[in-house]
Computed example of a mutant assay.
Amino acid sequence: MTDPHAYCQEKAASSGSSFYYSFMFLPPERRQAITALYAFCREVDDVVDECHDMQIAQAKLDWWRMQVAQIYDGAPEHPVGQALQQINKQFPLPREQLLEIIDGMQMDLQQTRYLDWKALQLYCYRVASVVGLLSAEIFGYTNRQTLKYAHDLGMAFQLTNIIRDVGEDARRGRIYLPIDELQRFNVPARQILDGQHSDNFRELMAFQTQRARQFYDQAFAQLPDEDRKTQRPGLVMAAIYRTLLDEIEADGFQVLDRRTSLTPLRKIWIAGRTWLRG
């Protein structure tokens, strides 16, 4: 029988994500809990990214909704569900928020374009801000203002992901950049789908980067001093992601034909330095 937490650990480690580096310094019980949450996010995200048959992907998301129900009311079959059920005793996670993450993945099945920032903001909230709110519950907080920080930090992370992955998403037929902003900067969708860089595209990406930085600044301004220590994993993640954003900008937003990334060693260095700063 698969050990649920060992499965989640392997899922997190194999992803190579910056999230993994952000909670490596946590106490064991909190690290186990956040790893289970992260593994859940990876599982449902993989449904959309790896399943090319829409009906099968829909069926898998529906199955994960049943798994969420079983976490709270029964016996989940999947190791990730089992791990979440175990950690839920110490770190109660709202059922509706786990379902909202699945709702975000559902949006990926139903649309490949977003009309404006308001429409994209709902997507970012579901797939990232909700994860931030759940993470804050696991890390611990005393001031509810910390939830505003967690919400905005999640938004900043997702915007950074969108900027980094423009080319990769376009090759899957998706453009997350709002349609009205493409029009404002005179960047036809076809140009992105064809991987054609231009000055207009760079100006569009500079605008998206400015928005992401505003959310980082907004998040940090809302983090109460008394919760700064417990919320260090988010600060670690932010340090890694902001460095990534700086690299993308310094490279002239060459995101259509490549995926900018930081080496594992650099991530560990940033993580350790940020953690020690508190």
Rank of each mutant, 00 (worst) to 15 (best):
I71E: 02
Y72E: 04
G74I: 03
G74R: 09
G74N: 11
A75N: 13
E77W: 10
H78P: 01
H78N: 10
H78K: 12
P79K: 13
G81P: 10
G81R: 01
Q85M: 12
Q85T: 09
Q85S: 14
Q85F: 07
Q85H: 10
Q86Y: 07
I87W: 12
I87V: 15
N88H: 14
K89P: 13
K89S: 08
K89H: 13
K89V: 14
P92D: 04
L93I: 04
Q97I: 08
Q97S: 09
L98K: 03
L98P: 07
L99E: 14
E100P: 09
E100H: 07
I101V: 12
I102Q: 03
D103R: 03
D103W: 03
Q106V: 01
Q106E: 09
Q106L: 02
M107L: 13
D108Y: 02
D108L: 02
D108F: 03
D108H: 02
Q110H: 12
Q110L: 15
Q110G: 10
Q111S: 10
Q111H: 04
T112H: 14
T112G: 09
Y114C: 00
L115K: 14
L115E: 15
K118V: 14
L120T: 04
L120K: 01
L120R: 01
L120S: 00
Q121N: 13
L122P: 05
Y123L: 01
Y123G: 07
C124H: 04
C124A: 06
Y125M: 07
Y125I: 01
R126T: 00
V127Q: 01
A128V: 05
S129R: 07
S129C: 11
S129G: 12
V130T: 12
V130I: 14
G132T: 12
G132W: 03
G132R: 11
L133D: 05
L133C: 06
L133N: 06
